[in-house]
Design a protein around this nucleic acid. Sequence first.
DNA 1: AATCCTCGTGTAATCGATTCCACGAGGAGG
DNA 2: CCTCCTCGTGGAATCGATTACACGAGGATT
Lengths: 343, 343
Amino acid sequence: MASVGIKDVAARAGVSVATVSRVLNAHASVSPAARERVLAAVDALGYRPNTLARSLRTDQTRTLGLVISDVLNPYFTELARSVEEEARALGYSIIFGNADERPELQDHHIRTLLDRRIDGLLVSPADGGSPLVLDAARAGTPMVFVDRWIPGLDVPVVRADGSSAVRDLVAHLHGLGHRRLAIIAGPAATTTGSERVAAFRDALAAYGLELPAEYIGQGDFQAASGRRATERFLALPEPPEVVFAADNLMALGALDAIRARGLRIPQDIALAAFDDIPWFVHTDPPVTAIAQPTGELGRAAVRALTDLIEGRTPESVTLPARLVVRSSCGEHPPTGTTRRSDA
Amino acid sequence: MASVGIKDVAARAGVSVATVSRVLNAHASVSPAARERVLAAVDALGYRPNTLARSLRTDQTRTLGLVISDVLNPYFTELARSVEEEARALGYSIIFGNADERPELQDHHIRTLLDRRIDGLLVSPADGGSPLVLDAARAGTPMVFVDRWIPGLDVPVVRADGSSAVRDLVAHLHGLGHRRLAIIAGPAATTTGSERVAAFRDALAAYGLELPAEYIGQGDFQAASGRRATERFLALPEPPEVVFAADNLMALGALDAIRARGLRIPQDIALAAFDDIPWFVHTDPPVTAIAQPTGELGRAAVRALTDLIEGRTPESVTLPARLVVRSSCGEHPPTGTTRRSDA
DNA sequence: AATCCTCGTGTAATCGATTCCACGAGGAGG
DNA sequence: CCTCCTCGTGGAATCGATTACACGAGGATT
């Protein structure tokens, strides 16, 4: 039952544990004969080094932590996938934590990750900055923010800039004749929560349009909040002509609410969303959305973090998002299929 | 920079490391006074035990590995979420691995997990059984299969039985007048790949219907394969009236293919899927699907695994799946909203 | 031929916890 | 008053690796 250790390998190869360690780590000089015997012993015994012991000694785990805001959100899921892929290519593994958009759950995972002595942390903060994150950052834990970030910290940020895409969206909507535009925002404590509202408001201003308070629904990036916000919009004396959801889950909730009211999209009300996902092609109707270069973001984030860990100078990265027009805001659907460019 | 260790705590509290360890682990007897001082020192220093050292010594990590077949599949994502939740409640953490339906990637993750000395493994095998999985099972690694399994191994299985739901589906389809029914299958090397075809064929047989070879599309549970299989169906001299996709991603691919052909659902061709997801409510049209009690499965799997680890006798669990009728197979959509019961 | 490197190797300290064992103090029982 | 537990505590071994240091053998340099 006792799994085989380095001692067993050493014994079988007739060398010391030091030599075994040396061949395994391509260290220093080892005679070809000894190397041969060690390698033979290793796979005769099926030896696998104990990473716990190794990490304890070397003080590095070659593991990165990734705390994502919500696993049920396809955007984060795709992000997680690309992060893991890039990390693997660079010789790191990833341990995920899912925050479910709850700051206390986020902290739980960060704590666990830190306890495991991960080499670095990738976070998409669910709030404006828990003491835990702040302390970790100040204590010098290698850390990179992805998608969302916390201002005022010397931590590289990898994210997409949606403002130009939001301008395109508003231009599109305005061109279709819409004038009363509403937004379902994310939590103000998150950068993506507040920035998307600001970008939307600015874009409206360019057309001389206002964004009245009752046209800002407060959501939390989860489907249920999108539903509630939309119901509130629809109950208004003068409901908006367009609802723009700041993420895809709240768009799903909006879809629920609109369908429950028996309204049609886009005839009765138009819908657009931040974050494009494959399902938006097949919803009724296909949803106009702002697509982020998700895969690129994940890869860039990993590169930034490994740069930081390995002593190179990481750079913050901002990539542009882009508008993908479908038919949920009115007019004819675009001819042909509109596909996402991000693979 | 050297993070604080148990020695620092001991020094500050004026006791030995043994005593510190004892209060931290609620072991043996410690005087209230000493306990007090230790606790004070612990949070004055912000001490956190090094889990690597602890695990090395105790030979347990209180960590479970979960290898899922595909993170981009909402079914597995939901499974992962419930698994983590239940594990957390029981005092374990989860490390995920995403196999992307590729056996070699699955093996990579299992190897990594094993190297980390996880206490137990939850697997949804992407193939009929890699040597790695077989060896681990035989070597006595606590292991539980979830969703899919490998026959002939003494490993508990937690899964859903879809056969009765498939019968319901076929009855529904037959009742709508459909007679030429096709299926997009998963890889034959997976149990869910072959069982769903078998269940479908059996259900058809009850109505005196055949399942000809050209009506069995070979997929791999990924969207692209669903698209290809559907294109092949549509190119047949006598195309099927219904396509039943064995998972939701292949259904997405089928949707793509059907739309690209300019056909309408359900007038030109009907569609149904295994695995229900929130988006199916809002696709065009809403998709009739077989829903698994995903959350329950995840929780049961964790309980079985922890039973195994902690020396209790785990039990295999089979829960029923159920049919959720929407409008993608014809007829009127059900009145009211059809929601998923699984929270 | 004496000296000095270089090369290959082994011994032992170390990482940070847990835990067995021994030991002294104090109370109970005789 | 002596003996024997029990209780609280500390010393030191241990888990399985890595790696600094020492050392002996052999070749090269003078």
